[in-house]
Design a protein around this nucleic acid. Structure first.
Length: 95
DNA sequence: AAAGTGACTAGAC
DNA sequence: CGTCTAGCCACTT
């Protein structure tokens, strides 16, 4: 069942090291999700005990409703953002 | 069953 | 920088 997808997504997100970030698209590709949209959906449900804050949109900005929290957490890990946008060039995680 | 929705993306302008 | 389109897929109306 798609329990497996949830698990893989959790695993991939958990695999992103502190100080690094990944995009929804990256997570989707690595976890084998059918679409990046699924990632957000899954995190919304299972994001409780995984570092969801290391997941950004393709342009380096976080999703609007959680932007404050996310940027604060990232900053605490040493990921500096220009306004709302993180420099993916520097902080994007490559497996 | 058809239409709307959303933690998305890539491309066109 | 920005807006708009089209594609995406599980879920809710």
């Amino acid at each position: 069942m798609d329990e497996e997808l949830h698990e893989r997504v959790r695993e991939v997100v958990a695999a992103v090291p502190p100080g690094k970030v990944a995009t929804y698209g990256d997570i989707a590709a690595l976890a084998g999700a059918p679409s990046p949209r699924m990632i957000g959906r899954i995190l919304n449900e299972d994001g409780a005990d995984i570092p969801w804050h290391r997941v950004l949109r393709a342009n380096g900005t976080p999703a609007p409703h959680i932007a404050r929290e996310q940027l604060a957490r990232l900053r605490a890990e040493g990921v500096l953002a220009e306004g709302e946008r993180v420099r993916l060039r520097e902080h994007r995680w490559r497996p």
